[in-house]
Nucleic acid binder design. Structure first.
Length: 270
DNA sequence: CACCACCCCTGGACGC
DNA sequence: TGCGTCCAGGGGTGGT
């Protein structure tokens, strides 16, 4: 579930709790979640954490040497900095013991997420993040228009594609298309420049509001301090198939678009 | 290029 | 109570 707003909440909460802390020990309980070197040094043992970065739905925990760990939360991943009891929770695959007190844990029941280690942030950016589109909070209308023009897929499928723009998932694409009043099946290459400008503006507003509300906790998302978000209470379409459109009252439709369950209003989005 | 089926994996909801 | 089935959607892959 973690999309840009949730991952940004993790970044903000971990920045508060983790930056400046030193990693004393690393316990890898399930090695296959680490794609890349498993050397304790590469997992930041003995390092002080200097920053937490984000690109789209991915995070980087950066150490003083420049070494970094890229974290992708997948569907059910959580990166939590809390007291040592956090390490006892099921599906906790990696535990970093911090020098002061407390631990950082990577937990992921479904294991769609994972960790990638890099010698420095430049290597992460060039080897892994270079394949992503621009971050959804930073992309400019011109650049996005360029990408959308190049594909005949549905707008929904294009916006879900992390190579087009990084950070949106099923929840926020559906919410955004409702805000825009645009049919999810509309071909991406039919949007005009003015429409893309409006899309970028609404996308930014939607994401900023979702971050401010703590992100969406639909099932099990929690931030870097273990707290759930509240934006799920403001969803207009996601998870509301069959309910009434908040704008016109008509029953919301549900179907598969871009390979994903999609909810929209047949009247407001046509 | 676009779409599809299928894969990774677990938990929760639901029907009987 | 418990069991089977389906679904959730972050990704990837290989075939049509």
């Amino acid at each position: 579930m973690p999309e840009l707003p949730e991952v940004e909440r993790v970044r903000l909460t971990l920045t508060e709790r983790l930056v400046g802390q030193a990693v004393q020990a690393v316990d890898v309980r399930r090695a296959e979640v680490i794609r890349g070197s498993r050397s304790p040094r590469d997992l930041l043992r003995g390092e002080r954490i200097t920053s937490i970065e984000r690109w789209g739905k991915q995070l980087a925990v950066v150490g003083q040497s420049g070494r970094c760990i890229c974290v992708h939360l997948g569907m059910t991943g959580a990166l939590v900095c809390a007291d040592a009891r956090e390490a006892d929770r099921p599906h906790t695959h990696v535990v970093w013991t911090l020098a002061g007190e407390g631990v950082l844990t990577f937990r992921d029941p479904r294991r769609f997420g994972g960790l990638w280690t890099f010698p420095n942030l430049d290597a992460l950016e060039s080897d892994r993040w270079a394949g992503l589109g621009e971050d959804a909070l930073r992309v400019k209308p011109g650049a996005l228009h360029q990408r959308l023009r190049g594909t005949r897929r549905s707008l929904k499928a294009a916006l879900l594609d992390q190579q087009v723009v990084a950070g949106l998932g099923n929840i926020y694409v559906d919410e955004l298309l409702f805000e825009l009043g645009v049919d999810p099946q509309r071909p991406a290459d039919t949007l005009e420049a003015a429409e893309v400008r409006r899309l970028v503006g609404r996308m930014r507003r939607l994401l900023v509001r979702a971050v401010a509300a703590g992100g969406s906790s639909v099932r099990d998302y929690v931030d870097g301090s273990g707290s759930a978000g509240g934006y799920q209470l403001q969803h207009r379409v996601y998870g509301r198939a069959g309910a009434d459109c908040t704008r016109c009252g008509r029953e919301l439709l549900s179907g598969v678009v871009g390979g994903r369950t999609t909810v929209w209003c047949g009247r407001c989005q046509s």
